[in-house]
Design a protein around this nucleic acid. Structure first.
Length: 494
RNA sequence: GCCCUCAUCGUCUAGUGGCUAGGACACCGCUCUUUCAAGGCGGUAACGGGGGUUCAAUUCCCCCUGAGGGCGCCA
């Protein structure tokens, strides 16, 4: 009745040791969708406790990629919030406080083992066919032993005492109840010898203190979960609800990695994928609607998303389907919008200048209208449409041998040139009329007439509507290109 | 080695104790067309194996197999 509604708070907690990749983006997306669906809060937290590998550069790159995808957060490093700081590297005192607390309560202890000793111990256990977990030999050191180790200059870690008996069960929203035997877990480290917290510890402290009540993350964290639950219990914190998402795999069925080619989000941005196409595709990796709907508007996806409909089995990332979806969104885009997105590609290819005048913009828009159906990825536009912008485009060699080198072509192009010159209005319709009547007069099939003109104007055998593209080129340029082709035929291909 | 998870077309998936097992990508035809796309129409293609339970299992249970993940002073 008077139950206070608990607001849903979820987070995405990447470590800045690399670029945002497909898997991370999918995790971020599901958290974001869940938060937006329930009108809860989506929090970004940077887990930069690995001093060796973390870098500020990756923090910026992560933020940039998430923003680009349109996944906005309510609290985080750049936007602030009431539960900060949102960098783990700035929360050192908090972790120390709780580690000490556990120490005082006898739930944790100093461990003086060196990495080398631990490595050796692990190898031995594996040789003996035992589970490679920490033996717990520092669990019950006498004060004298402690002093001895310290006088040797050993920097201790703090380990958590895992109960030797009992079972810890994870009630997962996607997988149901999953049980783990505590005795197989082994005492794990809370604070490294350099004073930094480990993932399991910092994660639990921060999630608790930040009020995270749903933990949505990759399947690869499922086996960490019992350790974390044990920590929540030792600290008297409320255990959050868990949802472990199925993994995304590469085409060979192994964990998605660099080996599978492009995995970073920035790659897809640069290649010319639309952010929403990527989001829409990622949403379908592990989640579906009862009718297997494929395309979603933003609000529609938020409204329809639910954890109940997340599947259990891992999914293979299929670049082909992503490409199809991108083409789908490109076709649905307004040409004017596409022009904005395409300008940087044209500029980089040296096809247009840094600043363009209204008439150039108008021309580009018309070109986009003609090429839109063929575009799957923005970067392809350059190859598809460069001839519109290049006066001296090259002729496709196939096109030359198959089309241009035919006997009748020079006289045909000559005749066309004459007729085009005489035309009072130069538009697609009249051009087509002219070309069709010419084919009739000469008793040549339309393709025998159209193809040479296409190659003369574009250098290619395929492309958008011939007459439409000629109209965009304009009368003067069309004539010039015919002349250029004629000249080429005379000088080079005799 | 030990622990955990998963299993429907090539891929993403829907689905049910009885269905012609549905959709999407990819692929292959046909169609439209000057070409390439896009579009329209159609097609090939799946319940991993073995035991149960049941009148009936792709669906429920067990085993096997296969695949993935974890077993760090990485996250």
């Amino acid at each position: 009745m008077n139950e206070i509604k608990e607001w849903i708070r979820v987070r995405f907690a990447p470590s800045p040791t690399g670029q945002l990749h497909i898997g991370g983006a999918r995790t971020a997306l599901f958290n974001w969708l869940f938060a937006r669906h329930h009108r809860g809060k989506f929090i970004l937290r940077i887990e930069d406790t690995d001093v060796e590998r973390s870098s500020e550069h990756f923090v910026r790159s992560l933020i940039k990629d998430l923003r680009w995808l349109g996944l906005d957060w309510d609290e985080g490093p750049d936007v602030g919030g009431d539960y900060g700081p949102y960098f783990q590297s700035q929360r050192g005192d908090i972790y120390k406080y709780y580690a000490l607390k556990l120490l005082k309560e006898g739930k944790a202890y100093f461990c003086y083992c060196t990495p080398e000793e631990l490595e050796e111990e692990k190898r031995r256990m594996q040789r003996e066919g035992k589970p490679p977990k920490y033996s717990g030999r520092c669990r019950n050191l006498t004060p004298r032993q402690r002093r001895m180790f310290e006088s040797e200059g050993r920097e201790p870690t703090i380990r958590f005492k895992v109960p030797e008996k009992g079972i810890t069960s994870v009630k997962d929203l996607i997988r149901g109840e999953v049980c783990f035997e505590n005795r197989l877990l082994g005492d794990f480290i809370l604070l490294k010898s350099n004073g930094m917290p480990t993932f399991n510890f910092a994660n639990v402290i921060d999630d608790s203190l930040m009020g995270i009540n749903y933990v949505i993350r990759g399947d690869d964290h499922l086996s960490n979960t019992p350790r974390q639950i044990l920590l929540y219990q030792a600290l008297n914190f409320k255990v959050p609800k868990y949802a472990h998402l199925p993994m995304i795999l590469g085409s060979d069925g192994t964990k998605l990695s660099k080996r599978h080619g492009a995995t970073s989000i920035s790659y897809y941005r640069e290649k010319g994928y639309l952010p929403w196409a990527l989001v829409n595709y990622l949403a379908l990796l592990g989640w579906s609607t009862p009718d297997s709907q494929q395309l979603f508007e933003r609000e529609e996806l938020i409204q329809k998303f639910s954890l109940e409909r997340v599947g259990k089995s891992s999914a293979i990332f299929d670049p082909k389907k992503l490409e199809w979806m991108n083409g789908e969104y490109i076709r649905r885009s307004k040409p004017e919008r596409l022009v904005e997105l395409l300008l940087p590609y044209l500029e980089r290819a040296g096809l247009i200048g840094r600043r363009i005048d209204p008439s150039t913009r108008e021309k580009i828009t018309r070109v986009v209208e003609l090429e839109q159906d063929r575009l799957k990825v923005l970067s392809e536009f350059v190859d598809l449409a460069d001839f519109f912008f290049k006066r001296n485009f090259t002729y496709d060699s196939q096109a030359v041998t198959k089309i241009l080198k035919r006997q009748y072509v020079p006289s045909l192009l000559g005749e066309m040139r004459k007729r085009i010159e005489r035309m009072s209005s130069f538009d697609a319709e009249s051009l087509e009329k002219m070309a069709r009547s010419l084919s009739e007069e000469l008793s040549l099939s339309t393709s025998k007439v159209f193809h040479p003109l296409r190659v003369a104007l574009t250098g290619k055998m395929k492309g958008p509507g011939l007459f439409e593209l000629a109209e965009v080129l304009g009368k003067e340029e069309t004539l010039r290109r015919i002349d250029r082709t004629l000249k080429k035929l005379k000088t080079e291909y005799v």
